[in-house]
C-alpha cells in the first residue's frame, strides 16, 4: 500500500459517500493495518495533500473537497459536495469533468451568486474572486486564504 493508494481511495470514497473515510474504514478497504493507514494520513498531511482536523486523524480537507459544510455547496450529478473556497468549488466540476451548480453568495452582502458550469464552460460568471493571502503564504494558515 502506497500513500498514493490511500489518497486515491480517500478521494473516491469521499466522492461516493459525501464524507471522507476514517482511518479504520480506509484500513479495512485497503486490507492494511490502521497503524499503517494512520501513518499514511499523517504523511499526506505533511505533504500538504490533505488537512486533518487539529489534533485528530479526521480529514478536514482533501482539496477541492471539504468534510465540513462551507458557503460553497456544489451540486453535481454524482452528489452534493462542499468546496473549501470558490476556487475549490470550481475545482470540483473541473476534477469530475461534469456539470455543476454552485450556490455561492457574495461574501460582502450575502446576496446569492449562483454559478453554473455546463459542458466545461462557466455560466453566470459575472462575479469577482478575491484572494487575501499571497500564494507563497497560503500554507501559513490554509483555512484562511
Amino acid at each position: 500500500m502506497t500513500d498514493g493508494d490511500v489518497r486515491v481511495h480517500l478521494m473516491e470514497r469521499f466522492l461516493a459517500e459525501g464524507r471522507p473515510p476514517s482511518v479504520a474504514e480506509s484500513a479495512a478497504a485497503l486490507d492494511a493495518s490502521e497503524e499503517d493507514v494512520a501513518a499514511a494520513y499523517r504523511r499526506l498531511q505533511e505533504q500538504r495533500v490533505i488537512v486533518l482536523a487539529p489534533g485528530t486523524l479526521d480529514v478536514w480537507m482533501a482539496a477541492p473537497l471539504s468534510a465540513v459544510p462551507t458557503p460553497f455547496p456544489v451540486e453535481t450529478e454524482r452528489g452534493t459536495y462542499y468546496g473549501n473556497c470558490i476556487w475549490d468549488a470550481l475545482g470540483i466540476p473541473a476534477m469530475l469533468g461534469c456539470d455543476a451548480t454552485i450556490a455561492a453568495s457574495c461574501a460582502d452582502c450575502g446576496d446569492p451568486l449562483p454559478i453554473r458550469v455546463r459542458n466545461g464552460e462557466l455560466r453566470d460568471g459575472d462575479g469577482v474572486a478575491h484572494f487575501a493571502v499571497p500564494a507563497a503564504r497560503w500554507w501559513d494558515n490554509i483555512g484562511h486564504t
Binding site: G4, R7, V8, M11, E12, A63, P64, I86, W87, D88, L90, G91, I92, P93, A94, M95, L96, G97, I115, V117, L122, G125, D126, G127, V128, A129, H130, F131, A132, V133, P134
Partner: peptide, 25 residues
C-alpha cells in the same frame, strides 16, 4: 490581495484540479 474574474478562477480551477483523480497525480 488579488481580485480577478470568475472566468479566471475557472481557468485556475481547471489547471489545478483536472488531474486530481489520476492515480499518478
Amino acid at each position: 490581495g488579488s481580485a480577478f474574474t470568475l472566468e479566471q478562477a475557472w481557468s485556475l480551477a481547471n489547471g489545478w484540479y483536472s488531474d486530481r483523480l489520476d492515480p499518478a497525480w
